[in-house]
Each structure stands twice: as structure tokens, then as C-alpha cells.
């Protein structure tokens, strides 16, 4: 049951990256870490309960996660081709 600490640690590292990094790719890596921390709980609890349903949920969650990453990177490519910017703060300043 204490694998939750490992999951929370990964979540904390992901949130740290999300807050401190401005590079769009680093931000996406941070989001990837956060989703991995969340989906890891499915496998850990499924393993502890000797149940395969958790693995199923993890497979479904991971598919959506990889799709989300692909969409975000496609948007990053489009933004970079148009504006030559990958800095998140510079991108948010464009709104003003």
C-alpha cells in the first residue's frame, strides 16, 4: 500500500517541472510524469489485490495519455513553425 509514496513523489516531480520549466517540451514531459504517476496506482493496487481489472484501466488510461501527448506535440510543432517560440511564458504574453 505504501507504493502511494512513490506515486506521490513522481507526481511532485511532475508538478515541480510544470511550475518551474518554461520550455514547451519540458512541460509536456512533466505532464507525462504526472499521468504516469496516476496510472501507476492502477497497476500497483491491481497487483496487490491480484486483479487484472486495474491493468485494464491502466491500458485504457495510457492510450488516452499517449494520444494527448501526440496532439500537444503536434500543436507545439505548428506553434514553432508559425512563431518560432517554444517558451510558455512568451506564448502566454502573446495573448495580451
Amino acid at each position: 500500500m505504501d507504493y502511494i509514496i512513490l506515486s506521490v513523489t513522481l507526481l511532485a516531480i511532475g508538478i515541480y517541472g510544470l511550475v518551474t520549466k518554461h520550455d514547451l517540451i519540458k512541460v509536456l514531459i512533466s505532464i507525462e510524469l504526472i499521468t504516469i504517476a496516476a496510472s501507476m496506482n492502477f497497476v500497483v493496487f491491481a497487483s496487490l489485490m491480484n486483479d487484472s481489472l486495474g491493468q485494464t484501466f491502466m491500458i485504457l488510461a495510457l492510450s488516452v495519455d499517449s494520444c494527448m501527448t501526440a496532439v500537444a506535440l503536434a500543436l507545439a510543432v505548428v506553434v514553432y513553425r508559425k512563431l518560432k517560440i517554444l517558451d510558455v511564458t512568451e506564448l502566454s504574453e502573446l495573448k495580451e
Binding site: M1, D2, Y3, I4, I5, L6, L48, M49, N50, D51
Partner: peptide, 11 residues
């Protein structure tokens, strides 16, 4: 934390 990990009785 992982030292204390135990399997649930329910299966």
C-alpha cells in the same frame, strides 16, 4: 514505504 507493502487478503 515499499518495505511495509503487503498484499490484500481479498482476491
Amino acid at each position: 514505504g515499499t518495505e511495509q507493502t503487503k498484499t490484500f487478503a481479498r482476491s
